[in-house]
Design a protein around this nucleic acid. Structure first.
Length: 452
DNA sequence: GCCAAGTGCGCC
DNA sequence: AAAGGGCGCACTTGGC
């Protein structure tokens, strides 16, 4: 335990007082004490950090902080006209699909209008048509949609209603300013794994399909560079598990999804669909998903249908191929069974109170990705002078978008890619640079929705 | 009318 | 035996 603690009670009563007028001697005294405490507090907290072996992780957080402020203050440019027009059409689409849904719905027992946003009412309506829904998730609805027009129409309506409600005109209200930019609230350390988060509005879950991302658009004379890490979580898992198959694949510059597809099918030539299947298998099984989970996940996220028997076969083949990954899972299971509840990333970032085995598998991988991205952002801040007029405007877990003057874009792209590779390489490989190669693909774009 | 929990779904 | 993880937001439900 740390010996030194600050045993101070800070007076809180002035915290919410009126600081806009004349300050009383008591208020000035309070303000002074509030500041005075920071230096001894720093000493105590730094000692605790060192005691807990968190110095490296803390250093990353300290270095990335100014970069997060930089990004937050920069805001992200938005084509508000385009967004609003899109929102208007989305609302029309949803209203139209709702009308169609009402025609296909059974008569309401009380003669009232159905509320299709209520899962209780949706289940009741389906029951009147002879379908007993266990829940109303889309993958459940998908099982009945071919035989039931109402359920098919419900799926279409749901999709449109989501766009109209979450990404409608209201989305723009929260953070938009009249200078044409959105100033969202970035949370440097929000997720339990160490990832960042964003709200008001959340810039990290704007739909990828459709046009919405194209309204995140650089203003006249400015341009974006969008860069993302290639298969970063799989590379991190390769490093953490020490899996020889994965390590050699990456050392040779091969693609792991294709490799998995080859091993699942037993053929050298694999189709695009088979690679898609392999992607679902890779991401699912990496973090301890079961066979049943795999069938749902493959359908939901990749549109790949498989039986339980097929899923079991893929599971077996996967762990026959990646023996190091299997060993890592077995090791973590033993640690978990001993009752250990602490996990750490490669930089030593700690997550406590981990109760589930699947969390033990995921947290160090996801968290190491966050470590690397944060160090990359810190490097951008520290090397700001190497690409003047360039600012990060948003980050999305394995992706960074920067905005710069159009004539500056070549330098900005090189500057961004270099920092991203260096940041991740440092946390991933330490002094053994390049052991697991880090690949970053940057592209030049007028909007977030261009290319990629 | 407010609040918390539950459900569902957008992203990585 | 059984098992993806991490978020934020909209909406309903149920209690006050």
């Amino acid at each position: 335990m740390v010996e030194r603690e600050l045993r101070l009670e800070l007076e809180k009563t002035h915290q919410s007082g009126d600081w806009g007028g004349t300050l009383t001697p008591e208020m000035i005294e309070y303000a002074a004490r509030d500041v005075e405490v920071l230096l001894p507090l720093y000493e105590v907290l730094m000692a605790k950090i060192e005691e807990a072996d968190l110095s490296d992780a803390a250093e990353i957080e300290h270095r990335v902080l100014p970069a997060v402020v930089w990004m937050s203050c920069a805001g992200v440019p938005i084509d508000a006209e385009g967004w609003r027009e899109h929102a208007r059409i989305s609302e029309e689409d949803a209203a139209l699909l709702k009308d169609e849904l009402e025609v296909l719905a059974p008569e309401h027992p009380d003669g009232k209008a159905w509320n299709f946003g209520s899962h209780q009412q949706v289940r009741k309506a389906a029951k009147l048509l002879g379908v007993d829904l266990p829940d109303t998730r889309d993958e459940t609805l998908a099982l009945y949609a071919t035989d039931n027009n109402f359920i098919a129409a419900l799926r279409d309506y749901r999709k449109a209603a989501k766009l109209a409600s979450t990404y409608g005109a209201g989305w723009l209200e929260t953070g938009y300013h009249e200078d044409g930019r959105i100033y969202a609230s970035w949370r440097q350390l929000r997720a339990a794994t160490g990832r960042m988060a964003c709200d008001h509005p959340n810039l990290q879950n704007i739909p990828r399909s459709g046009l919405l991302r194209s309204y995140v658009r650089a203003p006249e004379g400015r341009i974006f560079v969008v860069a993302d890490y290639s298969q970063i979580e799989l590379r991190i898992a390769a490093k953490i598990s020490g899996d020889l198959e994965m390590l050699s694949a990456y050392a040779e510059g091969r693609d792991l999804h294709t490799l998995t597809a080859q091993n699942l099918t037993g053929r050298e030539d694999v189709s695009e669909d088979e690679r898609k299947l392999a992607k679902a298998v890779n991401f699912g099984l990496l973090y301890g998903m079961g066979t049943k989970g795999l069938t749902f996940y493959a359908l939901r996220s990749y549109g790949v249908a498989m039986s339980l028997e097929e899923a079991a076969l893929y599971c077996r083949r996967f762990f026959e191929t990646y023996l190091g990954l299997k060993r890592w899972h077995e090791h973590e299971r033993r640690v978990w069974q001993r009752g250990e509840t602490e996990t750490r990333t490669l930089t030593g970032r700690r997550r406590m109170d981990v109760e589930k085995l699947t969390d033990r598998l995921n947290a160090p991988v996801q968290g190491t990705g966050a470590d690397g991205l944060k160090l990359a952002l810190a490097l951008l801040w520290e090397r700001m002078s190497e690409s003047p007029g360039t600012t990060p405007v948003l980050v999305c877990h394995d992706e960074v978008v920067v905005e710069c003057d159009a004539e500056q874009v070549g330098e900005a792209k090189a500057w961004l890619e270099k920092a991203m590779i260096e940041g991740m390489d440092t946390v991933l490989n330490g002094t053994d640079k390049g052991h697991v190669p880090v690949e970053v693909e940057g592209r030049i774009a007028r909007s977030w929705g261009d290319g990629g």
